[in-house]
Design a binder for these strands. Structure first.
Length: 219
DNA sequence: AAAACGATACACT
DNA sequence: GTGTATCGTTTTT
């Protein structure tokens, strides 16, 4: 019987800032759903540094959507994007800071069958949680989990301390897909991943989708 | 209109 | 096998 893993505490998460965002690497997010339990070891995360970060949803102040980000640490901020995907963040830092860490990739370490049912297009296990929306889907995270408290004594979502990661296995780079204001939102190396992990999403430069109807229109 | 993305189709190696 | 481009879909501002 493996030793019971303890959970990351709200105090710890409140202390997570830029320097400590990689502290979430190696941690294991667990979801107990009606379909069963799925657990994923985080291999890739990305920091969003509050209302002054032009790449953050919190930029420009609190809205209905970003209310959870402005609350205390240890809650899940779940957002919907591109008309079909849900992505999950862990709110970090002191209450009101509106900082959060986007969970971009993880290795499913328990509940493969359930995860595979939710992600039928995954051809191999590594595809179950490679990418933020894929990871959320594999874990059964969607609208209902927005605001979920990861540090509550009883809850169906929590964050377990993983095995320590070797410091020199942590890599950093620019954030993915963040257009930001003036493009400088990608200037900061606020993406963190574990070198050599196949569940780390492949880097894609920000929004290169061709603009439609920018100028003349029709045609 | 753009968006913190994923699936697919196609080209190429 | 890899890389690149296109499109789906709807919330949010």
């Amino acid at each position: 019987m493996p030793p019971r893993r303890d959970r990351l505490t709200r105090e710890e998460l409140a202390g997570v800032s830029l320097d400590l965002a990689p502290a979430l690497l190696g941690a294991v997010l667990v979801h107990d759903g009606v379909e069963g339990r799925v657990a994923a070891r985080l291999t890739e995360v990305e920091a969003y540094m509050g209302g002054d970060d032009p790449g953050s949803h919190a930029f420009g102040g609190r809205t209905a959507r970003t209310t959870v980000m402005f609350g205390p640490a240890g809650h899940l901020y779940v957002y919907f994007t591109y008309g079909m995907h849900w992505c999950a963040n862990v709110v970090c830092g002191p209450a009101g800071a509106a900082s959060a860490v986007l969970l971009r990739g993880g290795e499913v370490v328990a509940g493969h069958e359930v995860a595979r049912r939710r992600r039928p297009t995954a051809r191999r296990d590594v595809e179950l949680g490679r990418g933020p929306a894929r990871l959320a889907t594999a874990l059964g995270i969607a609208r209902d989990e927005n605001g979920a408290d990861l540090c509550a004594a009883s809850g169906r979502l929590w964050l377990e301390r993983g095995d320590p990661v070797a410091p020199d296995a942590v890599r950093t780079g620019p954030r993915v897909g963040v257009a930001g204001a003036g493009g400088d939102a990608t200037a900061f190396p606020w993406r963190f991943w574990l070198e050599g992990e196949p569940t780390v999403s492949t880097y894609r430069p920000g929004t290169s989708r061709r603009r439609r109807g920018a100028g003349g229109e029709t045609l």
